[in-house]
Design a binder for these strands. Sequence first.
DNA 1: CCAAAAGTGTTCGGCTTACACCCATGT
DNA 2: ACATGGGTGTAAGCCGAACACTTTTGG
Lengths: 208, 208
Amino acid sequence: MQVAVLVVILTVSEEELRVLLIHRSGEPYLGWWALPGGGLLPAETLAAASARKLVEETGVSDVYLEQLFTFDGLDAEPGSVAVAYFALVDARRVRLRAEAAWEPAWFAVAALPELAFDNARVIDYAITRLRNKLVYTNVAYSLLPQAFPLSDLQAVYESIFGRAFDKRNFRRRMLSQGIIRPTGRTAARGAHRPAELYEFSSRQPMVL
Amino acid sequence: MQVAVLVVILTVSEEELRVLLIHRSGEPYLGWWALPGGGLLPAETLAAASARKLVEETGVSDVYLEQLFTFDGLDAEPGSVAVAYFALVDARRVRLRAEAAWEPAWFAVAALPELAFDNARVIDYAITRLRNKLVYTNVAYSLLPQAFPLSDLQAVYESIFGRAFDKRNFRRRMLSQGIIRPTGRTAARGAHRPAELYEFSSRQPMVL
DNA sequence: CCAAAAGTGTTCGGCTTACACCCATGT
DNA sequence: ACATGGGTGTAAGCCGAACACTTTTGG
């Protein structure tokens, strides 16, 4: 198998940027934590293979998925390359198949276990790309449900960048860039003033 | 041969952004203009293969070379992928091997011939990437000689973006971003005031 | 009435843009 | 002396960053 795909599936939950890892079922690195991936089916495109892997692991399909980089020498087998993709999913929509032999699990990227190959480098690469894209695109739509309070969106950004933003500036930026718009609805979530709900102006990837 | 590299070699000469094309020597598209590329040698990395192709075509090796994107379905042969790279070279340092069977030649990207596969898409992709990188990196160093008048640098930027920039603002930006610095030398080039010569502060790729 | 998160405007500094004239040289 | 490209400063608008108080609700 000369060409394989590798999928960095990212989400934000409990205020942490997390990546989906599985246990490897083959040599080398049998039983180690690793990124999901694998070979292509006959006549399958790279994009289709990465989307298939994503569905296999998470059950979701209509999310942001982008080619990241092509690595070689990952498994010390000359001539083989891994085309890495990264996906952004809303953890609430994902049902990990707990019964699967490879025991998929979410790990905070700030506290990764030891990984097979140099998958850690691939994940770093994905995080850097994601941080850049958040600045000039609307890809965050893929991390949130259809409607959400603004504070949830801000928490997503803060978790990914690892720092706090000013509430007023953040709101102004999201609205003036046209990333989101108010729905008119509100939702209460505790002993305090209910929040207005927002939605993304577009749920297709857009450069701002 | 499942994995191949493809190299988009770009330069600016005579106020035009140009790409190096060769004649294909094999089927399909025998004899058509196409991007240089080919398979990997045993145990060769992708980066090494693209650098080798670059040397074969241009004789230069110490230039900016970056992985661009991995395409599949380019040649309708399922399971094969082409990992595209792009390189930035100073045309004055290049000696095309005119005797070679594939007759390499520079084409203005604004006036490309019909190309094999969808190499035109690969070139578009490279141009877009280059325009973006020029904004926040110093990669232009790879398109110019060691020392140069500021107007040459500006002409390079203008050719790539396809529009004119204000002289004063351009100078201020290049200097305040620390991309270039004066050498103290000057050079005359015609019936007018000689220009000060500048050099890049660093000839390694740097994010500003 | 208290705790908790939601919502709201203004000021300042820096960066980008637009814009016009004098300088040094070769012929 | 004139033609040619080289070199220079300033003002206006826009954008991002910093910053504190009031509102609404549940308990």
